[in-house]
Design a protein around this nucleic acid. Structure first.
Length: 481
RNA sequence: GGCCCCAUCGUCUAGUGGUUAGGACAUCGGCCUCUCACGCCGGUAACACGAGUUCGAAUCUCGUUGGGGUCACCA
C-alpha cells in the first residue's frame, strides 16, 4: 500500500468550527498512525468571504490543538503552494485539458439568464431539482458582444457513479441527476469541486475525509477524475456534529470556535478526546491520551449517525484530562488564567504548587483552578452570604480560640492539625460542624473549599492565624438581626 | 419535490443471526464527610414501525414513518 496522504482543507471564512476540528483530527490521527503525511490546505477561492484574520485563526487553532501539519502554510512542502488562491495557473492548465478533450466547454450565459431560467423552472412547478441547461453545451461559436464566460463540466447523463465510502459503505448516484457544474469563474477562480479535485490529485491525496454534507459533491468529483483519466482517492464521509436539539450546530448552541475552549481553560487533549469519541469508539473506552488516539483510531469504527454536542460529557472528559496532568504542569498552565483575574505569580510559586493538588479535584478547567486558588493570594474577599451567616458574634470566640490553639502546632501540616484540632474540639465538646464553617469563611471568604486543614497548611501558620483573628474581629462587630 | 445519507437508553456508543441488549455522560437513591468536590455502591432508562428471510433477528431484505444533507459564478 502506498504512503497515506490526507489533508484538511478549511475555507478561512470565520473561526475554526469544532465540527471541522473533528474531520481534521480523524485525518491527522490516520496520518500519524500510518506514518503518512498530513497536509493543510487553505481553500480561499471565495474572495468575498475569505479573510487574513480567519487564516490566522485556523493556523492558531491547529497549533493550539497540536494538530501539526507536514505540508502546508508557513512550512511549504513539495506539492505547494497550499493556498488555492496561489494555484490559479494550475487550475487554468487543467481546465484547458478538459476543454481540449471535450469534457468541458465555455459557457457565456449570464448570471441573469441563469436566474431567469431558474425562476421559470420553479414557476412551472416542475418536479425535481433545477439544473441549468446551458445552450452553450452544444455550441461551438461565441457571442460577439461579450467575452466573459465560465467553464463548465460536460456532465454525462447516463449510467451511475459510485464509490465505496470508508465510513458509509457503497454509495451510488445516477448520472442523470448531474448538472454541468462550473469549474472556473470568469476571473479564473475555481469552484469548490474543481479546485478540490485538482488539488487532491496534484497533492497526491490518497484519502479525502470530510463531513457528510459533502457526499453530494463526491460523484461530480469522481466524474472529474475520470474525465482527467485519473484514479480518484478513497473517500471517508463522517457524520456531522449537531446541536443538542438535533439542529445544525451554531453559535446559538455552543462555543463552536475551538479557540474559545482555550480561553475557557480546556486542555487541547481533552478537546481532541471528546471530539474523537463523538462519532468514533473503541470498545468501552472513554478516556484516551493523544498517543492512545493515534494508536487506536480506525475508520471502521467511525459511526454513520450524526452526533449531538453534549457539553456535560465534554466537561467530564476535560475533568479527567485535568486529573491526568502532573500538579506542576497544572500550575504552569494556570498562571495565565491567574493573571487574567489579577493574581500575578510564577509557575514555581510554592503556594500555588501546594494548593493545586487540593483544588484539582474540585475543578474542571484551568479557569476553575485559577479561581480555586485565588484566595491563597492577596486579601480575602468575603462572599456576602457566608459572611452574614457565619461571621457572627457567637462564633467570634471559637475563631480566637482556634487561632490560639494553632499557634503552638508544629509541624504545621494537615495531619498534625487534624489531630490536634479534633482533640481540642472533643475535649471541649464542640462539634466540628460548629467551628468548621466559620473558620472556612475566615480563611477563604467562601463557604466551599478544600478541607480545613489543607487550607491551613497551604496558607501557613502566620497567615492562618492572621485570617482567623481578623475574621473574629469582624464577627464580634457584626450586628445580629 | 428529485437525488443522497441516517435510525440501540435523554446523550455518546458496544453489538456484525442465538447476550439477563453491555459501557460512559446525564439523572435518581445511598455510603464517605468539616463545606464543596473527588471516590465508592446501587436504581430508572433503548433496539422507530410493519412485513419478509430464518429453527432463531437489534443484527439480513423490502416497505413505512421520522430526522439530516443537497439542488449556487459558497465551501
Amino acid at each position: 500500500m502506498s504512503e497515506v496522504r490526507v489533508r484538511f482543507a478549511p475555507s478561512p471564512t470565520g473561526y475554526l468550527h469544532i465540527g471541522g476540528v473533528r474531520t481534521a483530527l480523524y485525518s491527522w490521527l490516520w496520518a500519524r498512525q500510518t506514518g503518512g503525511t498530513f497536509i493543510l490546505r487553505i481553500e480561499d477561492t471565495d474572495q468575498d468571504r475569505s479573510t487574513a484574520e480567519s487564516i490566522h485563526i485556523v493556523l492558531e487553532s491547529m497549533r493550539w490543538l497540536g494538530l501539526d501539519w507536514d505540508e502546508g502554510p508557513e512550512i511549504g512542502g513539495g506539492r505547494g503552494p497550499y493556498f488555492q488562491s496561489e494555484r490559479l495557473d494550475l487550475y487554468a492548465d487543467y481546465a484547458d485539458r478538459l476543454l481540449a478533450s471535450g469534457h468541458a466547454y465555455r459557457c457565456y450565459a449570464t448570471k441573469q439568464e441563469i436566474a431567469d431560467a431558474r425562476d421559470a423552472f420553479h414557476k412551472t412547478s416542475a418536479k425535481g431539482g433545477f439544473r441549468f441547461q446551458s445552450p452553450w453545451r452544444d455550441r461551438t461559436d461565441r457571442p460577439k458582444d461579450r467575452d466573459a464566460h465560465v467553464i463548465r463540466f460536460r456532465a454525462p447523463h447516463e449510467g451511475t457513479t459510485g464509490w465505496d465510502d470508508e465510513v458509509k459503505g457503497l454509495i451510488e448516484v445516477p448520472n442523470d441527476t448531474q448538472q454541468d457544474f462550473i469549474l472556473l469563474r470568469p476571473n479564473g477562480m475555481p469552484l469548490y469541486n474543481f479546485g478540490c479535485v485538482i488539488d487532491d490529485l496534484t497533492m497526491e491525496v490518497t484519502l479525502a475525509a470530510r463531513g457528510d454534507d459533502h457526499i453530494i459533491n463526491t460523484a461530480p468529483q469522481i466524474l472529474l477524475y475520470q474525465a482527467l483519466g485519473a484514479e480518484p482517492p478513497k473517500f471517508a464521509h463522517m457524520p456531522m456534529v449537531l446541536a443538542p436539539n438535533g439542529e445544525k450546530l451554531s453559535k446559538r448552541h455552543a462555543a463552536v470556535g475551538v479557540l474559545e475552549y482555550r480561553n475557557m481553560g480546556y486542555l487541547p487533549d481533552a478537546v481532541l478526546n471528546y471530539l474523537a469519541r463523538l462519532g468514533w469508539s473503541h470498545g468501552d473506552q472513554e478516556i484516551f491520551t493523544r498517543q492512545e488516539l493515534i494508536e487506536k483510531f480506525s475508520w471502521d469504527h467511525v459511526g454513520s449517525t450524526a452526533g449531538r454536542y453534549d457539553s456535560k460529557k465534554f466537561v467530564y472528559v476535560q475533568e479527567e484530562h485535568l486529573r491526568m496532568l502532573p500538579d506542576a504542569e497544572i500550575a504552569r498552565l494556570t498562571v495565565p488564567f491567574l493573571a487574567e483575574i489579577g493574581v500575578v505569580v510564577g509557575a514555581d510559586d510554592p503556594v500555588l504548587l501546594a494548593a493545586v493538588p487540593y483544588v484539582k479535584p474540585r475543578s474542571a478547567t484551568l479557569a476553575d483552578v485559577a479561581d480555586g486558588v485565588r484566595y491563597f493570594f492577596g486579601e480575602v474577599e468575603f462572599e456576602q452570604k457566608g459572611k452574614r451567616k457565619f461571621l457572627v458574634p457567637e462564633n467570634a470566640p471559637h475563631l480566637v480560640q482556634l487561632a490560639e490553639l494553632i499557634e503552638g502546632i508544629e509541624p504545621f501540616e494537615k495531619e498534625k492539625l487534624d489531630e490536634v484540632v479534633k482533640g481540642w474540639l472533643e475535649a471541649n465538646e464542640l462539634p466540628m460542624k460548629k467551628v468548621a464553617q466559620p473558620a472556612r469563611v475566615a480563611m477563604t471568604g467562601r463557604t466551599r473549599s478544600p478541607g480545613l486543614f489543607e487550607v491551613m497548611e497551604v496558607l501557613g501558620k502566620d497567615r492562618t492565624i492572621a485570617r482567623l483573628r481578623a475574621a473574629a474581629e469582624l464577627a464580634a462587630a457584626a450586628t445580629t438581626h
